[in-house]
Write a protein that binds this DNA or RNA. Structure first.
Lengths: 238, 238
DNA sequence: CAGTGGTCTAGACCACTAT
DNA sequence: TAGTGGTCTAGACCACTGG
C-alpha cells in the first residue's frame, strides 16, 4: 500500500481507537507532516481521501475535524464491492437459488455492452440478515471477464473471488435507485405480500479500464433496507 | 474561480460540446499541461475533481476517458444543494403548504444538534414535475443560521437564497434512504393511495464548518422517483 | 494578525498498459 | 519498451477563520 493510503488508514485507525466524535479536531497539518515525516502534499492527499470517504472534513483557517454520520444500522451505499458492508453484530447469510450460463436479457446486454448472443453467468440469490430476509439479487456477469463460477464460490462473496481468485480489478460503478411494488415472484422470496413496497438497487460494475462486467438488480425488503450516503460539495472550496 | 476548477469546467464543456461518449479518450496529460499552461499537479487536480464527479475515469498506462451513465431521466442523488437538478426539458414547480417558526421535533432537534427550545423554520412543500406530483418535503432550518424566510423565498429555491442572500456556505450532507408505505397525510398530497410505496430521502445539511443547519425529509412519488449515484473505488488505485 | 488549510510549481522517479 | 498516468518532494505564496 502506498504512502498516502497508509497514512489515511492510520488516521482512520487513530479516530477509531480514540473513539473521536463528529467535530473533534485532529492535529494540524504541520504536526501530521512531522509525525509521518512526509511532505505537505502527501498529508493533504491522505486527508482528501478521508474527506472523500466521509471520515473527516477540512476547514481552511480552522482545522481538520472528524466526520461521523449520526445513525446506526444503515448500509453505506457507496462502500460497494460487495453489497453488504459488515454492520457490527449483524450476520449476513446467503441462499443460492439459481446459477447458470445463459444469454443475457436485452437490458443486461445493454448494460454490459455485449451482444445478445454472448454468454453471461446468471446468479440469483437471497440474502438474510440475522435470519430475516433482506433482499433478492439477480446478477449477470460477462463470462469473458468472469470466466468461471461454481456453486461454492457463489455461496460466499463473489466479489472477493473475482478480485483475489481471478485477479480482476474493479473500478467504478453506476447505481440506480427507485421504489416500487414487489412482483409476485420477488415477494415470494422475500416473504412479503405481492404489491408490498420494495427498494430497488440496480448497479453496473466496471473494471478499472471502464469495461462493464456485472449488472445486478436487487430488491430489498422495505422493512430491512436503510441506506446512507455522505456527500461533499464539489465546489464548496470556491 | 481557481485554476483547477476552471480547467475542470473547461474540460467538461469540451466533453459536452463535442458530445463525447463513455470510453472516448481525452488528450494525454502532457497535452493538457501544455494547452492550459499549468503544472502537472494542477491538471491532475482538475481531473481528480472530474473523476469525483463521475465525468471521467483515469487509467494508468492508458489514458483519460469520458464517463457517462447510461440512463436518462434519473436524478443525481449527489448533486445536492437544492434537490432537483434540472433534467433537460423538465419543469419543476412548487407549492408551499406551510411556513412557520416553531420548536423542532425531537428528531429534528437531534439532527440539527440543537435544543428542543431553540427555534426552527419549518417548511412543508409539494414539488411537481411537469404538473405531476413528485414529492412532499418537510424541512427544519436552524433559525440561528437561516435567520429569515418568507413565503416568496420559500416558493423558489431556498438554497439559492441561503447561499446568495444570507452568505451561508454549505459544506457536506448526510443522506439517508429507505422505502416504505405512504402515510395517509402524505398520500393525500401526492395524490396516491395510502399504503402506496414511497421512496424516502432524509438529509442533514451542514455548513462548511460542520454545523448542521437543515434537516429535511422528502417522500417521493414512487412512479416518479428514479435516482442514480456514480461511485469510485476508494482503494482501486492500490 | 497569528494560525491553519489550499493552491501551484518544477522536477524526479515509480507503476501500469498496450503493443 | 515506449507511452501514459500516479506518487512524492520542497518550497513559495494565497485565503480563510477566529480571537
Amino acid at each position: 500500500m502506498i504512502k498516502y493510503q497508509q497514512i489515511a488508514a492510520e488516521i482512520e485507525k487513530y479516530i477509531e481507537e480514540n473513539a473521536l466524535q463528529q467535530g473533534d479536531k485532529l492535529p494540524v497539518l504541520e504536526a501530521l507532516m512531522a509525525h509521518f515525516n512526509v511532505s505537505k502534499s502527501t498529508i493533504t492527499k491522505a486527508l482528501d481521501l478521508l474527506e472523500k470517504k466521509g471520515a473527516v472534513f477540512q476547514v481552511r483557517g480552522s482545522g481538520i475535524f472528524v466526520r461521523k454520520q449520526k445513525r446506526k444500522g444503515y448500509m453505506d451505499l457507496l462502500s460497494n464491492q460487495g453489497f453488504k458492508k459488515e454492520l457490527k453484530g449483524v450476520q449476513i447469510t446467503l441462499k443460492v437459488i439459481e446459477l447458470e450460463v445463459k444469454k443475457p436479457t436485452k437490458e443486461a446486454a445493454h448494460s454490459l455492452n455485449i451482444g445478445l448472443d454472448d454468454d453471461v453467468y446468471y446468479v440469483k440469490r437471497v440474502r438474510y440478515m440475522n435470519g430475516q430476509t433482506l433482499c433478492l439479487e439477480e446478477s449477470y456477469y460477462n463470462k469473458s471477464v468472469v470466466t468461471y463460477l461454481n456453486k461454492e464460490i457463489v455461496s460466499k462473496s463473489i466479489f472477493e473471488y473475482i478480485q483475489k481468485g481471478l485477479g480482476v480489478k474493479i473500478g467504478f460503478s453506476d447505481v440506480y435507485l427507485y421504489a416500487g411494488k414487489l412482483k409476485q415472484e420477488e415477494a415470494k422470496h422475500l416473504c412479503l405480500d405481492s404489491e408490498a413496497p420494495a427498494f430497488y438497487v440496480e448497479t453496473i460494475f466496471h473494471l478499472t479500464n471502464g469495461q462493464p462486467f456485472d449488472f445486478s438488480k436487487v430488491a430489498y425488503h422495505y422493512e430491512q433496507s436503510q441506506f446512507f450516503v455522505q456527500t461533499n460539495s464539489y465546489f464548496s472550496k470556491s
